[in-house]
Every structure is written in C-alpha cells, then in structure tokens.
Amino acid sequence: MPDLLGLVAYGSFFLAIIGINAIGCLGLNLQWGQTGLFNVGIAGFIAIGAYTSALLTTPATTDHIGGLHLPILIGWLGAMITSGLASFLVGAATLRLRSDYLAITTFGVAVTVHLVTLNAQSLTGGSFGIAFIPRPFETYASQPAVFGLANLALIVAVVVVLYVGLERLVRSPWGRVLRAIREEERAAASLGKSATRYRLQAFALGGAIMGLSGAIHASFIGFIAPDNYLSSVTFQIWTMLIVGGSGNNLGAILGAALIWTTWSATGFFTGMVFPPEQQARAAALQIVAIGLILSGTIVIRPRGLLGERTTVSRHLNG
C-alpha cells in the first residue's frame, strides 16, 4: 500500500516539523513566558545552532571549514553551547538596560548572523548553504515511512524530555524567582545584580534550546541555507507562543501545532488558488495571515489559548 506509506511518511514529516518548532517555542517560552525577555532574533539563534551542528557533523569537505564528522548528538550539544553562549553575550550586554534594547539587539543579531551565513563562504558555504548533513536513522532513508516515524519518535522524545525538564525548572525555586522578577520590576531592582544574573541564565538557556531546535532541523532535513533563517521564522515562533499561551509550556507546544498547521493549510490554499508563476507572491499572503493572527491575539486574548496556570496562586502566595 504505497499510498498509506506515503501518507505515513508525510504525516510523520509534518509532525516532526511541528516538534522542531515546538522546541524553539519552548526556548522562547523560557525567555519571554517565564522571564519576560523580548527576543526578536530567534532566527539568528536557531541559525547559530544549525550551522554549529552542521559544521561538527558533516563529513570532511573542501567547501567550508569544519566537516569534523562527529556523532550527531555531539553536534546537537555543540549547537546548544554556541547558541547559549551567543545568547549569554547578548544578554550580558543589554539585560541591564531597558527591555526595548534587548529587542533591538537581538534583532541585530539575527540580521548579522544572516549576513555571516551569506557571506562567510569558508565558514558557512555562503548562499549555497551546507549539504550532506548526517541524518539520524540514515540507514532507513530508502524507506520514507520508517525513516519518518523513527525521526518523529526521536523528536517527540526530545520534546517530552524538554517539556518535563522545563516544567520542573518552572516549579523550582529558580523558576519562582524568574517569575517574581518578571512580575515586579521594582522587586527585581531590589535583588540588584542577582536579578540580572537570573535573567541572564534564563536567556542563555532559552537560546541554547533554540540552538538545539536549529540543529535538529538541520539534521532532519540534511541541508541548510541562509534563507531558512529569515525574520519570518522569528515571527512564526512568536506567533506560536502567543497563540498557544505564553508562560505555559503546553501552550508553547499547542501553539506550534496550530500555527504550523495554519501555515501549511494557507500554503496549500494559496497553492490551489494562484497559478504557479504567482506562487512567490501568494506566499506573502501566508505571512499577512499569520501577522493578523498574532496582532489579533495580542489585542483580543493576550493570554493565548492556554494562559499561564500559576498566575492566580502566585498572587495569593504573595
């Protein structure tokens, strides 16, 4: 039954992409939902992770440096370290300033990272990107359904581990301090330097998770190029979190599923309605749709579908 197998392959691919987005979204939820830090450069941190992992895991090549052919897991770990470090540096430079400055700086990071991926040929392969990134379960690649399901299982496992870990973190004293800082700027000021330290930790960890999302995506697709990391990615992840419900890890995952489905559906729809030569143009309508969803949610239901669960009890506990 090739049709069924094709469907399974497509379905698992679709769900795997949702999982990868959910990982990025969980990273953002730690930064924004829990800590109130506004990151407009998500695409940049994802790209740093993707490229790190690609350089670490690809076989030896003359196209770019790297090609260390290390195990995939080492690539993912490396991705978390570089993205986390980049986030740490950005945070260290801006977290003591007004929140807008973090937004502007992270935006600049994304622009600059994109520039590096495009122009630093020897490091990133330039606009051609990096190909032949080893994929998990590569030996099953000839059987798309099995390959897809195996990868999906791996990605789901990562999402579950992250979810459980982040939930525990949120409920830990560390997580409570984060929310206290977010809620009460003045209380945060009284904590002084240590407040900045907590925020910095959350920002770096969130960035590392975004990097992991990029690395997994690179390993899953096997090919990366600069145009995978445009600001529209940042925008999608933000919409996922806001719609799902910022401050809620389950909301982050739900939002990823909903927005990716909407994205694909609108893509399918414009694909049917517009002739092939108008496709590039019609794709812009997808962004308009997501933009309207984001703005509408912020205005009408700022808590998203699943708002933060702990809000009430936190106020009661004072």
């Binding site: 506004f38 407009v40 929140s99 807008d100 937004a103 600001s231 529209s232 925008f235 933000w238 919409t239 806001i242 962004i287 308009v288 997501i290 933009g291 309207l292 984001l294 703005s295 912020i298 205005v299």
Partner: peptide, 11 residues
C-alpha cells in the same frame, strides 16, 4: 513592541 513586529511583517 511585539505588536509592531507583527505589524511590520504583515505590512
């Protein structure tokens, strides 16, 4: 700020 970012993408 976030809304302005969304509006920028849509516009």
């Amino acid at each position: 700020v976030m809304a302005s970012f969304g509006a920028s993408m849509a516009l």
